[in-house]
């Protein structure tokens, strides 16, 4: 016979049976006892041991189940505490399992939450709108071509211009406007621009208070004001405009970008005056 006595089928079967019999022991104790029994067999047997000799040694060792019972009694471990197969994971203990469960629950909640939030519909441009300053409103022109509407006012370089639109929140989530995304939403170039949201509802948008960040509650309208100082240099007959708002929005705890198509294009037209003269 080559190898060691541990390779003998009788020994292998015994150790396998022992392995399962020790399932109720703590892992470290089971491993230690297995090592002791293995060393015992390795020492007591030789590669040339006969089947009878091996059987006798195994018989004197005692049945694995009895050995396990003895070990359980010595270790003070109560049966039913777990199985060997699950012991690797049961090592966590109840605190570990609790922590793991809480972690998984939190992670699952976050994932579901983010999925919900990201699937929430964006704000919509609905209802009335207008140029913010009466001076622009008085000079505004309106046109419609190919189903697209647009309004235009003369550009006033270096001066404050603005518009106001009504945004509707069609969702059940409060959506908070944090600011503009990727620079200005102003028609044409602007040296600075600022977007704010009416803190309340009302039809006369110029009399409302505006702030940012500000929220649009579920299924409600709010005026949104965009003010800017233009530095657009336009020649006579040329124009620049914008027909969408790119906003940073917070829904719940998640921030995202919403690109909101406007109901009409907002344009400033040349010629530019002031610093462009």
């Amino acid at each position: 016979m080559s190898g060691t006595a541990l390779d003998h089928p009788l020994v292998r079967d015994y150790l396998r049976e022992l392995h399962f019999a020790l399932a109720l022991l703590p892992a470290a104790r089971a491993d230690e006892l297995t090592e002791q029994i293995t060393a015992h067999l390795d020492e007591a047997l030789t590669p040339d041991s006969s089947d009878e000799e091996i059987a006798a040694v195994l018989s004197r060792l005692g049945r694995p189940a009895d050995l396990a019972a003895e070990a359980l009694a010595s270790a003070g471990t109560k049966p039913g505490a777990g199985t060997k197969r699950s012991r690797q994971t049961l090592r966590l203990g109840w605190r570990g399992w609790t922590a793991l469960g809480v972690t998984l629950a939190v992670a699952a909640t976050i994932i579901v939450y983010v999925l919900l939030v990201t699937s929430v519909a964006p704000l919509e441009a609905r209802g009335p709108s207008g140029w913010w300053f009466g001076r622009d409103a008085a000079r505004a022109t309106y046109a419609e071509a190919d189903g697209a509407r647009q309004t235009a006012v003369p550009v006033r370089v270096g001066q404050l211009q603005g518009l106001a639109v009504t945004l509707y929140n069609p969702t059940g989530w409060t959506q908070t406007i944090l600011g503009q995304w990727q620079g200005s939403n102003a028609p044409g170039n602007a040296v600075r621009s600022r977007i704010t949201v009416a803190t309340g509802s009302g039809s006369d948008f110029r009399r409302l208070r505006y702030a940012r960040p500000a929220s649009i509650p579920p299924h409600q309208f709010r005026w949104v004001r965009l003010l800017w100082v233009s530095n657009t240099c336009l020649t006579k007959g040329s124009s620049q405009g914008n027909d969408q708002l790119r906003l940073q929005i917070r829904v719940g705890w998640a921030d995202r970008v919403e690109i909101i198509p406007l109901r009409q294009g907002w344009y400033v037209t040349g010629p530019s005056h002031g610093s462009c003269d």
Binding site: R29, E32, L33, Q36, I37, H40, V57, R60, L61, G62, D66, L67, E70, A71, A73, S74, A75
Partner: peptide, 23 residues
Amino acid sequence: VRDLADADGLLTSDGTVYPLLNR
């Protein structure tokens, strides 16, 4: 184990010595 086994009747089975040693 062998020394204990030499004392007749002391060991019911050789394997019980190891849990005892651990205890």
